[in-house]
Design a protein around this nucleic acid. Sequence first.
DNA 1: CTGTTAGCGCATTCAA
DNA 2: TTGAATGCGCTAACAG
Lengths: 331, 331
Amino acid sequence: MSATIKDVAKLANVSAMTVSRAINNTGYIAPATRRNIEEAIKKLHYRPNTIARTMVTQKSHIISLIVPDIANPFFSELIKVAEAELRKHGYSLFISEAEWNIENERSFVNSSIGRMADGVIMFTPRLPDDELIAFSESIPLVVVDRSMEGTSVMDVYVDNYQGAFDATEYLIQSGHRRIGYIRGWEDVLNTKRRHEGYRDALAKYGIEYDESLVQVGDYRDQSGFQSFEYFMALPERPTAVFASNDMMAYGFMSACSRYGKKVPDDISVIGFDGINLFFTPVPALSTVNHPGNEMIRKAIYLLLGMPEQEIEEVDKYLYTELVLRDSVKHL
Amino acid sequence: MSATIKDVAKLANVSAMTVSRAINNTGYIAPATRRNIEEAIKKLHYRPNTIARTMVTQKSHIISLIVPDIANPFFSELIKVAEAELRKHGYSLFISEAEWNIENERSFVNSSIGRMADGVIMFTPRLPDDELIAFSESIPLVVVDRSMEGTSVMDVYVDNYQGAFDATEYLIQSGHRRIGYIRGWEDVLNTKRRHEGYRDALAKYGIEYDESLVQVGDYRDQSGFQSFEYFMALPERPTAVFASNDMMAYGFMSACSRYGKKVPDDISVIGFDGINLFFTPVPALSTVNHPGNEMIRKAIYLLLGMPEQEIEEVDKYLYTELVLRDSVKHL
DNA sequence: CTGTTAGCGCATTCAA
DNA sequence: TTGAATGCGCTAACAG
């Protein structure tokens, strides 16, 4: 077993309390005493027990982050950012991957409460509002990229409608009329908004909304791949496809290259997220940039309190932004 | 504050102990009592405090996993696997990203001990042997992809030498004689072995080992990119490059496409890891498959105890494997 | 500057 | 089948 604070106290001939003070730099300690204690600590390889400390201080210095998919670069980058930001403030990160699964989300929040996390950040949870509200009464909770307006739950939000509208409009302005759409999980609000943006852009240009051009996806690359097969089997194929996230767009492009279709010559693709790849795929994907990193920072500030000097930066409204690369052809 | 076991006990008119037994299904409880307790739990939204439980049982049901880089798909996939495997056994995963930084590694192990993790898995740590040995006396520790032979530290190991040898030999057999090599962190044993494999393959075919063809990399895509610039500035350029991990190979390929060089027509590339991408890069990268997922599973079994029915599968020797795709040209 | 007492929320041990 | 006492390792509050 590891040495405890008592072992150190005994060896240094002081009380446990004094050792505690030495470790935490709280209150005055005679230099000689301090030296004794430090020696004892070294000799015993003493490490304070964070768990015990949490019990009494009621503070774990842990923030729990629940994301849908760790393998999605959009989220793995965000995790990096969160980790770095939290470390600056002396916090550790507890990461869970919900896999877009409601049951997992529930279980992870419960586990976070049980482990006395100081706060939970959920990225686009699928959990219904009332459960989120209930949870937020047991633990500080920030929901990211989903509006919780009108409830007591903290949220960070970017309107996804405009981004989807822009993407669709761009395709239309490039001369496309038959535009496929690959949906995500529509019980997540941002997804619904993307769908609306797509629909409204079509409407603005007098293009009829066609259900058969809408494929249900699950935000994983695999479903982008399958959508390709669906679209290609259509009597009237789309000339362009808008995928509601980049993973599905890349899955779609994989299918293209697998089946010998050229992007953008044979079919155009546009995504959503602005994934930052460590490799430049050919062609580079045009997409809608989604400020995930900024959102996560804002979420952290919401939980830990805003750093004075950064309020301005943080408080500003967050925008999506069309990123034009090489995956769309102008007809 | 949340309800405690005492609140439940009071409401159910029993002692805390009885509630504890009800929750943990230990010992007999009258059905009526149990019903009362369950009602009280529901009414109070009681959730057992895992932290307190850990204090007394000395078991946290947490395994701490330390990887160098979360954004590297090799590791993010491995995290998925670990999480799934651990969940099956009722464990949670605490993930830390060391960023190939020794100080971080040290701090994360210490933090794992402080949080009473039941075990630590470190993937290719750079920490020196003696520190790892010291840590392993405070907490069950498994080191993955680095041999700890001759010490008391548990390890899971694949010999990386053969994989590197195979890759280099393949390039030679494809007609290449000037073969660049991009190194990783050589204080990590597997990296050193890869380097040796490269060197020995050259020797076998009577090709002189040329220091100027060896670039120091850091396993990040960026350094692969920079290596390209280095190699291109050489008076006698290599016709092929072996990157000691896939991230650097992809970084290298990015540079190729940025500078208008075609892979494999202008230059051949081979990687190491067998990253499983969610899209098909063009050209597809030839590489050496590295059984990371199996290693992590084995590490978990080492920590939690082998599941009887899977001993056979787990106990087998792990191999690397050459995966031939489209990034190498036959001269 | 240092020590004592008490308790965080729970489970183990022993007793009833 | 249930309960009381005890302690996990630490720190807050108060006393000296």
